[in-house]
Simulated scan of single mutants.
Amino acid sequence: MKLLQTIEEVHKIFDTGGSSPLLVTCNDFNDWICKYDKFPNYLFNELLASEFAKIWGIKVPETALIKVKQEHIPTDMLTRLQKNWFYKECFGSKYLEDSKEIDLSILPLFKEKKFRDKVHDKSDFLKIALFDIWLSNEDRNHNNFNLLLNLSPEKNYFFYAIDHVNIFNTSLLDYGLFNISEDDSIIKTDLAKILFSKNKKTKQIVTNLLENFYLCIEECKNKLAEIFEKVPTSWGLNLEDIKLKLENSIFTDDWKRSCDNNFREFVQSFIINQ
């Protein structure tokens, strides 16, 4: 994973109600969304989930580690930011200019067939939902989609998954792992109904996703050591302990079967039966 550094003052703080990331410009002359959480576990969650998502074929913004220079933190932001949070590398996601965060205000657009036809890889929506079930992500739901709709150069739209701080039931497996509820899933949303409830291909999409589900998990497990090499030592994490927790949770056969069942039940209840 490449390491970048800021070249000018922080542009803004996004008031997300959560980690409140920064918008910064780095020495590659691109803008980045920068997570600086004072808890390294959250940075790890972001890094791990983004790497797993790439293995699954889920679209995520390009990622990097970012060093925010102390002199680039404006004085007026120091009431909200502590300089010691930036002694270690931050987690960055490339800022996608041609994108819009999905919220309830753009749902009417999806009701128009002409607009829906421009959305490619619609099955990615359900793939992301299954991914969230596997990682127990409690923070992608009807109130907070954490999805971008990105416009490609060919004028097609694609779903991009963002913000994975709250995987593992908003912890780092310190208290075990629990299935997310139906209210914590984007399957129980009006957008899911619009995209799939009258779609004749939905059942086949679900079958295909679950067939690949087990293969994706196995590849994630095989790539774990490679992913861990990307984790900065400055985050001070016990990677051996984390590896053991992962092996005893998301990679177990029982957990995979449970995720498979939950995904089928959610789709049946909130999409097919609608």
Rank of each mutant, 00 (worst) to 15 (best):
I217Q: 04
F125I: 02
Q274I: 05
D37M: 03
L48T: 00
L65Y: 04
L43T: 10
E46K: 03
V231W: 11
Q268Y: 09
L81P: 13
L107K: 06
I205G: 02
E51Q: 15
E138F: 05
D139L: 08
L244W: 08
I73H: 00
T233N: 08
I66Q: 01
E265H: 13
L246P: 00
K256N: 11
M77V: 07
K114T: 13
N208H: 11
Q82G: 08
T189S: 13
T233K: 13
L3K: 14
K83I: 15
R116K: 10
D132Q: 10
D28G: 12
H11C: 02
E62T: 10
S152G: 08
S185K: 04
I194L: 08
T207C: 06
L191K: 01
D15V: 14
W85M: 11
Q274T: 05
R257H: 14
K230V: 05
W85I: 06
L65E: 14
E71H: 12
L22M: 12
E62M: 06
P232Y: 01
E219Y: 07
F270K: 02
N208I: 09
I58D: 02
E8L: 06
Y157K: 01
V60M: 07
W235D: 03
T189R: 06
T189W: 04
K122L: 09
E229D: 12
A225L: 09
G176S: 08
T16G: 15
I194F: 10
I167Q: 01
N141G: 06
D98R: 14
A161W: 01
C34P: 01
V24R: 01
L244I: 12
N150R: 12
L149V: 09
N84R: 14
E112L: 13
T63G: 05
E154V: 10
R264Q: 11
V10R: 00
P61A: 08
K118F: 14
I162T: 11
Y42E: 01
